[in-house]
Amino acid sequence: MFEWMAWTLPVAVFFCAIVAMLVAMTVWELKSPTVLRRGFLPIATTRGDRLFIGLLAAAYVNLAFVAVSERMVGWFGLEEEPSIWLSFFASMALLALIMRKG
């Protein structure tokens, strides 16, 4: 029944990760409610705010990487374009940083 919408496995994994994140955040919130606090971000944030900001920042990091990865070959003398996994891990690290210290 999903055939006509052309669903693919990576997209399914992506959305499962998002749903898992939402569920995990809900459980976390129930176990220990979040406190509004101020980190290095210019506004006071709750845990959910930081997740949102972190995910948005992660998306921008990946997009920026994709935009310049072609030019990186010239900049760093690479033999082929750097893998998108590099920016994926960088963006996840950024997400973790924003979640903890933001």
């Binding site: 919408m5 052309a6 669903w7 693919t8 990576p10 997209v11 992506f14 959305f15």
Partner: peptide
Amino acid sequence: LMTVVNYSVQ
């Protein structure tokens, strides 16, 4: 929106 994400990788 999910469909859009799906189309964007195919």
